[in-house]
Amino acid sequence: MSRYVERNENDQLDAGTKPADPLPELQLPDPALAGNISIEQTLAQRRSIRSYSDNPLSLSNVSQILWAAQGMTMDKFFRTAPSAGALYPLEVYLIAGNVRGLDVGVYRYAPARHSLIRICDGDRRDELCKASLSQPHIRDAAAVVVIAADYSRTTVKYGTRGIRYVHIEGGCAAENICLQGMSLGIGTCVTGAFDDAKVASILNLPANEDPLLILSIGYV
């Protein structure tokens, strides 16, 4: 069962993040490490899905998708997507609209604890849709994932070349989401056309984070 927990200053922080948030944190169900479909099948069947049913996502499936994007692996240090220098510049945000067991709102995924930190309340899908050239699949999806980046975490070591490395990492995380979604019977669509400043405002992103891409997720 998932449960809200309060963080304190002694909790372990994710690499490169701010000090502990005072907001409640939702512990996600443990991710599964085995599935019923092969990687070859997910590659063959993956498609961009822009039309979704009204069926809600389960919290366990949301947990699995977030873990696929940036979850910690069994060695408890590296993550599911490769990162230049293991510097992990990405931040993953969930905009929940129709997820069983999860209030509508914006959440940040905390990989080290496999949990969600609530950023703000309210259904932001319509706002996000309007900020994304009014593409309806973002409004109609059960939930939306936004991948943002703090470039400085990587450029401090690699200079301007680090910008390319961050983009490579964002693509790896997005493909992980798409393949994980396919294995769960969940449709996904990667979107790159949006107003950066508006998306950052909707999600209340810190000034050092830039949105890279948006993924709508939902049952077909």
Rank of each mutant, 00 (worst) to 15 (best):
Y165Q: 02
T160P: 00
I186K: 01
Y107W: 03
F78K: 14
G171L: 12
Y88F: 15
I202G: 03
F194K: 01
C120E: 14
R161E: 11
G162D: 04
A131V: 13
D123R: 03
Y93E: 08
R113W: 06
L179F: 12
D196W: 00
I202M: 08
A193W: 01
A197M: 08
S83I: 02
C178H: 12
D140N: 15
H167R: 05
I117E: 13
R125E: 07
N204C: 13
L128F: 07
A142S: 15
V190E: 00
Q135I: 03
T160Q: 11
G122W: 09
F194E: 00
I95N: 01
G101E: 11
C189W: 00
R108H: 07
V166G: 03
V99N: 04
K198Y: 07
A143Y: 02
I163E: 10
Y165V: 01
G192E: 05
D121W: 06
V99G: 04
E91Y: 03
H114S: 09
I147L: 14
R164I: 02
R113K: 13
R161W: 04
I119Y: 10
R100W: 01
V199C: 08
Y165E: 05
D126V: 15
P82V: 09
N176T: 04
A200N: 07
L205Q: 00
S152W: 07
S134G: 04
G85P: 10
P111H: 01
G97K: 03
I177R: 02
T188A: 09
E209R: 14
G85T: 12
D121M: 06
K130I: 12
T80V: 10
D195R: 02
R113Q: 13
A197Q: 09
I177Y: 06
K157L: 13
L116I: 12
D123E: 05
G159V: 06
V145T: 15
I95S: 02
S115I: 09
A148I: 06
Y93I: 11
T191K: 00
G105N: 09
H167A: 07
R164F: 04
I119V: 15
L212Q: 12
E127N: 11
G192S: 06
I138S: 04
P111L: 03
V106Y: 00
Y158I: 15
A96G: 09
P111D: 07
G97C: 03
P136R: 05
V145Y: 01
N208T: 15
V199A: 11
D210F: 03
A141M: 07
L212T: 11
T155W: 01
R113D: 12
A173Y: 10
A96L: 05
S83M: 05
A110Q: 11
A84F: 07
D195E: 12
E175D: 12
E91K: 12
I95C: 10
Y165W: 02
S134F: 13
L179E: 08
R153L: 14
L102S: 08
I202Q: 01
I95A: 10
V146M: 06
N208G: 04
R113L: 13
E175L: 15
A197R: 05
L213V: 14
R124Q: 15
Y165P: 02
T80N: 12
A200D: 08
M182N: 06
S183L: 04
G181E: 09
H114M: 10
Y107E: 09
A200R: 02
A81G: 12
